[in-house]
Simulated scan of single mutants.
Amino acid sequence: MSARLLLCALALAAQAASAQPLPDPTRPPASLTTPAGDAAAPHSVEPQLQSVLIARHAGGRHVAVIDGQTVRLGEQFRGARVAQMTQNEVVLVKGRERRVLRLFPRTPAPQRLNERD
């Protein structure tokens, strides 16, 4: 009886050891938690739009959070001016370069399987 119990315990321990942890959705981006100048730090080419807050009344505040940094309409983010904000997008302009950050990035449409008659 104890041999079965030991075998079950070993099987459960092996299963737990091979399980992969799920990423924490509340954890800040790695770029915020890695010290500046760290060579091992991952460098994000595309800034991540995390939140957009637009006041309901005309002339109200427009605020966005990009890579953990709060910016207002007209302010600078990494050398680019925050030119436009909508509920789902922020437009950054730097010289002639225009970059649109989306809160919900577009995903490719799912491919249809060939239907047989």
Rank of each mutant, 00 (worst) to 15 (best):
P29L: 13
L22F: 07
V71R: 14
N88T: 14
G79K: 10
R78Q: 15
V82H: 03
F77A: 13
S31W: 04
K94G: 03
A11F: 14
F104D: 06
L101H: 00
G59A: 13
Q20D: 04
V91I: 11
A40Q: 09
A58N: 11
L5T: 10
A16H: 12
P108C: 05
R4D: 15
A17N: 08
V65H: 02
A80R: 10
A36F: 04
P110G: 01
R78C: 14
N88G: 06
K94N: 12
L22M: 08
E97W: 02
P42L: 10
P29I: 06
P110V: 01
M1P: 09
F104W: 01
T107R: 10
M1Q: 09
S31R: 04
R81A: 13
R72D: 13
A64L: 06
A14H: 11
A14G: 08
P21G: 08
R96K: 10
L22P: 02
T86M: 01
V71N: 06
D24R: 02
M85Q: 06
M85E: 03
R106M: 00
L103S: 00
A16D: 10
Q111W: 00
D67M: 13
V52W: 00
T107W: 01
L7K: 14
V52H: 02
Q69M: 14
P28W: 06
E115K: 05
A41C: 12
R27E: 11
P28F: 02
N88W: 09
Q48V: 15
S2F: 09
A19R: 13
E89S: 12
V65D: 05
E46L: 14
V100F: 01
D67G: 14
V90P: 01
L101M: 03
V93Q: 12
A58R: 11
Q48S: 04
G74D: 09
